[in-house]
Amino acid sequence: MINKIVRSMAEAMAGIKDGSTVFIGGFGAVGQPNALIDGLIEQGAKDLTVVANNAGTGRVGLARLMELGRVRRIVCSYPRSTGSVVFEELFRAGKIELELVPQGTLAERMRAAAAGIGAFFTPTGFGTKLAAGKETREIQGRMQVLEYALKGDVALIEAWQADRWGNLTYRLSGRNFNPVMAMAAELTIVQAQHIVELGEIDPEVVVTPGIFVNRVIHVPYGDPPI
């Protein structure tokens, strides 16, 4: 019997190696796998490359992981937001590398990795400093920039419902990067608000099928803060 549901955070985090590329889902405070980030802090892996839309806020979660010196490099589209104090401090001190990526290019690079595509051309960023040094080509009359697929070793995902096969649904804007990250990582770990019986999620409604999911832990943590 397939059962991807794990009983402890230690089991959920087992085997994450130093130097891993870790995808962290969420946009704003919605759909963010907070319990898994805390689990990763506890687990101890270091020298990480983190891929997330933002570079953490306050001094908890991703910001805490960075403050502990465990993140060597961050790949994101919006590092500066209200409360991104830890990132600012580390970046100014030269203690963290930043790869700034347009948000759509970030999502598409992960989708490419998920679909076995090595790289793609996009007009986004052409002629700007974010395309500096990148290969460009005119395609269909438009100048485009070569962008490479971005594969994760680990994805940390927040879902609404999960079953023991790892089929997932999400809640409203909690969906955001979670499905594409789940598809593009080698080891996808999910915290789910609700565990449901196999068959309870209508096949037409499954957003992430279990083929993209390795482990699920039940974390009924409630609503994101308003």
């Binding site: 589209s77 919006y78 590092p79 290019t105 700007t128």
Partner: peptide, 11 residues
Amino acid sequence: DTAPAVGGAMD
């Protein structure tokens, strides 16, 4: 400005 936030503006 070495770390500005681009978000989805370029897309």
